[in-house]
Design a protein around this nucleic acid. Structure first.
Length: 760
DNA sequence: TTAGGGTTAG
């Protein structure tokens, strides 16, 4: 409702500007009247030069002068030029109440709420217009408390004031309050009756609307159209049609509403029949048909109507463009977009969404950057585009920028930004978003609430996830699933994998069997994989293979991956090779597995095989996913790669690591060189190890995260053995809690040991 | 010259 209403404001301004422009083209003489510019006003001097007026005549000239300038203010305001309007206002030798009213109304039209109020407060004399303009301004901004306060303060109310208050309640879902105003009104007109009718219609109380409609006979055409539209929105086509047929004198809107209703409900034949039958067709009628065909996926039909349209506005163009976007025909959409004479924000937004949904984020961003004006939808479309295409960091940055730019985050951008935080485990940013969310009043909605839950779950804050879950007022299926999934990761699968990681094989086996026997949960592939992993890590490779043979389904690549991992730990090259071969067949592009096998060869010193593996990867075009780590410091994300030389504080970080190595060696640390896969000199190997991304990130964390707060580092791959060992030492020497999330689990390093018990 | 209700697009 909100964006729709604001949009209409924008749109009507846009149309008016277009109309003014068209008038100018057709009739340049109309320039003075429709679009006066400040310089063209006749000055007092000029006026007196033309004819010497008598005192009376001079006063009348001044009066009409004020009227002209008032009109100039309105024109500037309608074109969105508040400053030009203010210049006119300030240059006026004397002003009438209308001058002030026009300024207030203009400011409100352009969303400059404080300026409007300032003008209202300082004007010397207020008439009905002043109060009503201000009142409807509050209503339009959905500030009903302020609207009601102003309404109560009014020295006198007329029918417009009562109606404005009534529609304010009606449009914002306060049907009972609207009804109360309606009943208190000392006088009512058609607008008041329609106001209440619309309150019912727009808040889903269609049967109340029908009863109201039946309680009185002399409804005007707007009321008929309104009730008919209500039936159509609830897909009650027959009721709508009965009403349509009974309308005493139909107007164009009646036809358009009925045609749109048929078109949007897939009854295109009936829509077309009425379209042919209707006495006159305007741009609405044509656009309704275009969007009807678009919504039913009939692009060619839509296009042929579109091409036949005698007159198009931006809405018609946008409908057609949106059609192509929905069908992923981006080239066609772009062709129209480029050809469009009057693009508005929506045209840009549609294209941005289109490119994002087709994975072309760069093109979407290019459009976003080129936009002359953005609204909250532009921002959220771009943020969603980033998240959906895996650019979580960019999404988070953009949502911060959005706020900085003065645009309030809407539900959609909150949802996307929280999802992005979840993906990169940016807990601090996520918490900050949570704070903004509470302030914005969106916290109870399901979509946002679920995203918040998922964020806390994936950042490893299961307690905060639980709190967020408790606070969620309407929990839907997704909320429950998210929470169960959260517990599962820290609980069910978590229990199994924790057993694997701490070597409690028998306990794990017990849980595995009790799952189905006591709790009736059918073990899925993930559970089997956990069990294979569990047995494999413990060196019980035969049992692991036995379990795989007895699985009720074929083992997948992940299960074989567990075998390969276990083979590496226990140096079983033969089994590792077998597992790798199967995995390569299932997932030829899985670079992780190539690396794992390559590691296996390296660990047993089979360097020629390592080289062969590398060549094979190159031939197959498999790229090694580069390892990187990141952490959040004061809501900024810092990313590191091995031997990183781009970070602005790299000198400090390297110096710190050198110092740390001295202390670590003193404490007994030895680097595990066998983990470096290349066949290079020992010393060089050690150098590479020293600057792995996770070490750099941890070092930066120690330097920049305030003492007493945990250092949270995330790595996209599994943490390497040497880093794991080194971080234990670092936690001991610095006395810091270091929490590392790698792509498998959370590691809590504290006082020289890790929560995984060195199994991972 | 300035204020209140209905229909079409993202």
């Amino acid at each position: 409702m909100c964006s729709r209403f604001c949009w209409r404001q924008f749109h009507s301004g846009c149309i008016r500007a277009q109309e003014a422009q068209q008038k100018l083209i057709n009739n340049p003489q109309s320039l003075k009247l429709t679009n006066p510019i400040p310089n063209s006003y006749p000055s007092k001097k000029e006026l007196s030069r033309k004819h010497k007026p008598s005192k009376n005549e001079f006063e009348t000239t001044t009066g009409s002068d004020i009227v002209k300038l008032n009109m100039a203010i309105t024109t500037h305001m309608r074109n969105g030029q508040c400053e030009s309007a203010l210049r006119v206002f300030n240059s006026m030798p004397s002003r009438s109440t209308v001058s002030y009213n026009a300024m207030i109304s203009g400011y409100l039209l352009n969303g400059k709420f404080d300026l409007a109020r300032e003008m209202f407060d300082k004007m010397p004399h207020r008439d009905f217009f002043s109060w009503n303009v201000m009142l409807s301004g509050y209503v339009r901004n959905k500030n009903l408390t302020a609207a009601r306060a102003l309404f109560e303060k009014m020295p006198k109310r007329d029918i417009v004031s009562w109606n404005a208050m009534l529609s304010g309640y009606a449009q914002n879902g306060f049907v009972d309050e609207a009804r109360e105003i309606f009943e208190k009104m000392p006088f009512k007109n058609a607008i008041s009756w329609n106001g209440l009718l619309a309150a019912y219609v727009h808040n889903g109380r269609i049967d109340d609307a029908r009863r109201l409609f039946e309680s009185k006979l002399d409804w005007d055409i707007v009321s008929w159209n309104c009730l008919m539209g209500g039936f159509l929105r609830r897909k009650r086509l027959a009721d709508a049609r009965r009403l349509f047929d009974k309308i005493p004198v139909k107007d164009e809107v009646s036809w358009n509403t009925m045609i749109t209703g048929y078109a949007q409900n897939g009854e295109l034949e009936e829509a077309q029949r009425l379209f042919e039958e209707s006495p006159s067709r305007d741009v609405f009628t044509w656009t309704a048909m275009v969007s009807g065909f678009v919504q039913n996926g009939m692009l060619d039909k839509a296009r042929s109507i579109f091409d036949r349209m005698p007159e198009k506005n931006s809405i018609s163009w946008n409908a057609m463009i949106a059609g192509y976007v929905q069908c992923k025909m981006l080239d066609m959409a772009n062709e129209l977009f480029e050809a469009m004479p009057c693009r508005n924000i929506s045209s840009w937004n549609t294209m941005i969404t289109g490119y994002s949904q087709s994975g072309e984020v760069a093109r979407a961003r290019n459009l976003f950057d080129r936009m002359p004006l953005r609204d909250s939808i532009s921002w959220s479309a771009m943020i969603a585009g980033y998240v959906q295409n895996g650019y979580s960091e960019e999404a988070v940055h953009l949502s911060v920028e959005m706020r900085r730019d003065g645009e309030k985050l809407n539900r959609s951008s909150f949802t996307c930004a929280l999802t992005a935080c979840a993906n990169i485990a940016a807990l601090e940013l996520g918490k900050q978003l949570h704070g903004w969310l509470v302030k914005s009043g969106y916290q109870t909605g399901c979509f946002v609430g679920n995203a918040l839950l998922a964020m806390y779950c994936k950042c490893g804050s299961i307690d905060e996830a639980h709190d967020a879950f408790q606070e969620l007022s309407d929990k839907d299926l997704i909320s429950w699933n998210t929470m169960i999934y959260g517990y599962a990761r820290h609980g069910l699968v978590g229990v199994l994998s924790a057993c694997g990681h701490t070597g409690l094989v028998d306990k794990g086996t017990e849980y595995f069997y009790s799952m189905s026997q006591e709790y009736g949960i059918t073990a899925k592939s993930v559970h089997y994989t956990c069990m294979v992993d569990l047995l494999g890590r413990a060196g019980r490779l035969d049992e692991a293979q036995n379990l795989m043979r007895n699985m009720p389904f074929e083992p997948d690549a992940a299960t074989w991956g567990a075998v390969l991992g276990a083979s590496r730990i226990h140096g079983n090259t033969e089994l590792g090779e077998k597992a790798a071969e199967i995995i390569f067949k299932m997932e030829p592009d899985n670079s992780g597995m190539y690396i794992l096998l390559s590691n296996l060869y390296a660990a047993s010193g089979r360097w020629p095989d390592v080289s062969k593996m590398r060549l094979k990867m190159r031939d197959k075009g498999v790229k090694k996913v580069p390892g990187y780590s990141w952490l959040e410091v004061q809501t900024k994300i810092h990313t590191f790669t091995v031997g990183d030389c781009f970070h602005p504080e790299k000198d400090k970080i390297y110096a710190f690591l050198e110092e740390m190595y001295m202390k670590m060696k003193h404490e007994g640390y030895l680097s595990s060189i066998k983990m470096v896969l290349h066949d290079v000199e020992e010393e060089e190997k050690e150098q590479m190890l020293k600057y792995h991304s996770e070490k750099l990130a941890v070092a930066y964390g120690v330097l920049s995260v305030p003492t007493g707060r945990p250092i949270r580092v995330i790595k996209n791959l599994r943490v390497c053995e040497d880093c794991h060992n080194a971080i234990k030492y670092i936690s001991k020497i610095t006395g810091r809690l270091i929490i590392l999330r790698d792509n498998n689990r959370f590691h809590h390093f504290k006082e020289g040991s890790c929560s995984c018990g060195d199994y991972w």
